[in-house]
Amino acid sequence: MVEDSALERERARRVLEGHCVLEVFAEGPTMLERLALGVRPALVLLDLNLPGLSGIELLRFLRAQLDAAELPVLMLTVAGSKADVVASLEAGANDYVTKPYDPAELLARVTSQLRTQQLHQRLRHAEEGFRRLAAHLPDVVARFDRQHRHTFVSPSILRFTAQPVEHFLGKTNAELGMPAERVQQWDVAIDEAFTGREVSLEFEFPGADGRRTVQSRLLPERDDRGNVLSVLSIARDVTEERTRAEHERHLIGIVSHDLKNPLAAILMQVQVGLMRGGGDAATRDILERIRRTATRATDLVSDLLDFTRTRLGGGLPLATRPQDLRDVLGQVLEELRIARPDRQLRWEVEGETSLVSDGERLAQLATNLVANALQYSPRETAVGVRLE
């Protein structure tokens, strides 16, 4: 508190005693010397009419060093002087109390400012922690305001663009020279994120070693009331990841395709052996086991090929012909009954079931659905299947 009146200082001490630690000064220069030692108070109570350096002059000096969030100032003004109130607020005061003041009002305003100061400190600490974290991430972290300007960019932007952080701050993507089509893509995504939804964005980026594929997630940043204040973007270079995944898919496809030829040869030889009688019963049993195992391996290879085709965007090949779904489903359920003799399977058919379709794909779909039902339903219950 900076107050030249000893009576006012003592009065304020009695009001605030037990609520805060009050340090008093009779003049501004003495208080400034105290601040110069690195001791920053949570709040300054400042009398407007001080001898020598006036309260307004002292306030302007403080504001040149610290803003209203860093050091709140509560002005003590004379009752009835609107000009003093206006001058105090224009100079950077957070609030004011007119003298003579009601003790309860002074305590309430001081408590309010201290509470606000604590909130600012927590927010500042959280922001500092966020910036430290962003500085060590390989991803590019950026923050956008409602005008789509960059209000924060992490240092990793330098690796992506060879431009420093300062080049981006306060600018929109359009002002940074981004192509119009991509600006529109970003504008739509940022606007959607401001509605409260998370948005994913993928685009090509001209890097120093060629074009890069970048994937970005846009997240709304909210206040305590749930209002969206800004949008946070986390951009990651997925070029190597996509290239590696594509190579893996091609490798799976090549290996799967090459495996089908020897498996087909095995099946053909086994089938020939069975057609010729297969020798004694033990030999036929061995051949039948080989046939079942090779058939299963062929199915697995076909599944791998299907997986590769879908991942490469080619879709699943369909071999359609007229058939009855009753027969397809009946065969699937019979195989599952054999595989799971401990479970009950019930099914019913209603209406016309003939159509043109790929029976193998439908059998695969039905097998997956019913097998999951058998796997995850209680053992004592029956699994029902209805075809209509």
Rank of each mutant, 00 (worst) to 15 (best):
D258E: 14
A91R: 06
A68S: 12
L89C: 06
R289W: 06
R236C: 01
L365G: 03
F152S: 03
D358V: 11
N368C: 14
V301A: 15
A235Q: 07
P138T: 07
S200L: 05
R212M: 07
G210T: 06
N49M: 12
R13H: 13
R340E: 09
T98I: 03
L71T: 11
A64E: 11
L287Y: 00
I266V: 15
N368D: 07
A245E: 12
R309E: 10
A87C: 05
P220W: 02
L7Y: 11
R13W: 03
A245K: 14
R212L: 05
R222E: 02
R132L: 14
E348D: 04
N368L: 13
A193C: 06
E350Q: 14
H150Q: 15
G359M: 02
N372M: 08
E17P: 02
E335P: 00
D285K: 13
A265C: 11
D324L: 04
L201R: 13
I290Y: 12
V356E: 06
V183A: 03
E23H: 03
L300T: 04
A208M: 10
E380T: 11
F205K: 08
K171V: 01
E70F: 09
F194T: 02
R211M: 14
R109M: 04
L89V: 12
V24I: 13
L329V: 07
S233F: 01
G313E: 06
V270L: 07
G55S: 08
L43W: 03
M1P: 09
G315C: 03
T30R: 06
L71F: 10
R311I: 00
L259Q: 05
Q185A: 14
L123I: 01
Y96G: 10
L201C: 13
H125V: 11
T283E: 14
P341A: 03
A281N: 07
S88P: 08
L114F: 04
L35R: 04
V73C: 03
G273S: 03
T283H: 13
L106K: 12
T213A: 04
M75N: 00
G129V: 10
G80E: 01
R225S: 15
A135P: 08
E350K: 05
L176R: 15
G207Q: 05
V199G: 02
I338V: 14
G359A: 13
A135W: 08
L325V: 10
P51W: 02
E10W: 13
R115Y: 07
P29V: 10
